[in-house]
């Protein structure tokens, strides 16, 4: 489900946004755009195949607990 909907969004974004950026030869924007879209696609593929994606919430909780001396719940 997530991969299908992501592919629809990516196709729409390429048509609406990416092709005009390419035509305008805005290379920096083009590469950043492609980079973000690639990560977006990778995340969608991983989620589709139920691969656990690391969340920053837990490491941040550990760091905060370590610095401020909380007990981890």
């Amino acid at each position: 489900m997530v991969l299908t909907s992501s592919l629809v969004i990516i196709t729409a974004l390429i048509i609406i946004d990416l092709i005009p950026i390419y035509r305008d030869q805005q290379w920096k924007a083009f590469f950043v755009y492609c980079f973000f879209l690639t990560i977006f696609l990778i995340l969608a593929v991983l989620m589709e195949y139920n691969v656990k994606i690391p969340s920053p919430a837990e490491p941040i909780r550990s760091i905060v607990s370590f610095i401020f001396g909380f007990e981890q719940s």
């Binding site: 997530v2 924007a29 973000f36 977006f40 969608a44 994606i53 969340s55 919430a57």
Partner: peptide
């Protein structure tokens, strides 16, 4: 120009966030 992929990246990353 880069608004759409930035936002979509955040919205897909929101799923495994919590």
């Amino acid at each position: 120009r880069i608004a759409a992929p930035s936002v979509f990246l955040a919205s897909i990353y929101s799923i495994p966030l919590y």
